[in-house]
């Protein structure tokens, strides 16, 4: 694990999380949340060294095709079936500063909405050349990019006729364990976004819109792949102004 920049490491505690912006634990429209949400209040804990530190991953963990889902599971010379897209963007913190060296992991269904997972029973077929996982690390400016096929929507047993919009799951590490985040990216113009009980767990429409990636015509590669731009924002870090902490903490 290495620091990827020459800047002095940031060691301030994180901005407190706006829990009215995030989905609450109990969201009965998303049925599984009913028995999996705490009923008691969370105990507030302003960042100690245990929360403001976190693992940082070096590029040595990455394979050459880790950010190419079209090819990283495909047989030699073959590729995944579906709409070829590039997803790219930046990881920033709430102070709009780039988060360099952030590990991003993503996973998704194939073009027909089928996941490669033994518990998945949807009748749409697997694509023999598509696994569905990828990862990358942001550069010094917080940029990332990967190549994939656009996932299809899929039905799920919640309401009798619930379908997930096309989406890609993202797991993000910042620099502190308290920044750990999992979210989902949706696609501009998908009418299913607004019907989805999982999307609807988010109370604020602006927070939902922040998860919708824009079609990025400028970065579309002619005769090859369209591009979508998806920026991710992690918690900001306080400046350590006037923090009354003991030496060495």
């Amino acid at each position: 694990m290495t620091d990827l920049s020459n800047r002095k490491p940031e060691t301030g505690a994180f901005f407190s999380r706006d829990r009215l912006w995030h989905p609450p634990g109990l969201t009965p429209g998303y049925k599984t949340s009913v028995l999996r949400s705490p009923q008691k209040a969370l105990l507030s804990l302003d960042g100690t060294v245990s929360e403001i530190t976190g693992p940082v991953f070096g590029h040595s963990i990455l394979g050459e095709l880790d950010n190419d889902l079209i090819h990283n599971f495909a047989k030699p010379g073959e590729s995944a079936i579906g709409e070829r897209i590039i997803v790219h963007g930046r990881v920033l913190d709430e102070r709009a500063r780039p988060v360099a060296g952030a590990l991003l992991e993503f996973w998704q269904a194939n073009a027909g909405g089928r996941y490669r997972h033994k518990k998945e029973s949807y009748l749409a077929p697997l694509d023999p050349n598509f696994g569905g996982c990828g990862r990358t690390i942001t550069d010094a400016d917080g940029h990332y990019a990967f190549r994939t096929v656009k996932p299809g929507p899929y039905p799920w047993p919640n309401g009798v006729n619930d379908w997930r919009p096309a989406h890609i799951h993202f797991s993000v590490f910042g620099h502190g364990f308290a920044q750990r985040l999992i979210t989902q990216m949706y696609f501009e113009g998908d009418p299913m976004i607004w019907k989805c009980p999982i999307v609807q767990t988010i109370p604020d429409r602006a927070a939902i819109e922040q998860l919708v990636a824009a079609l990025d015509w400028g970065n579309t590669i002619p005769m090859d792949a369209r591009a979508y731009k998806f920026d991710i924002v992690l918690r900001g870090r306080r400046s350590t102004l006037f923090e009354n902490r003991m030496e060495g903490n």
Binding site: W21, P23, H117, E120, I182, I202, A206, L234
Partner: peptide, 26 residues
């Protein structure tokens, strides 16, 4: 001028595909 943190969403039932692919057979 602060940005808002990206809202969380559930990891879902197939989180293993992304985070522990070998564990789930990928």
């Amino acid at each position: 001028g602060y940005l808002k943190e990206s809202a969380s969403q559930t990891a879902g039932p197939y989180v293993h595909i992304g985070l522990t692919p070998n564990f789930c057979g990928i």
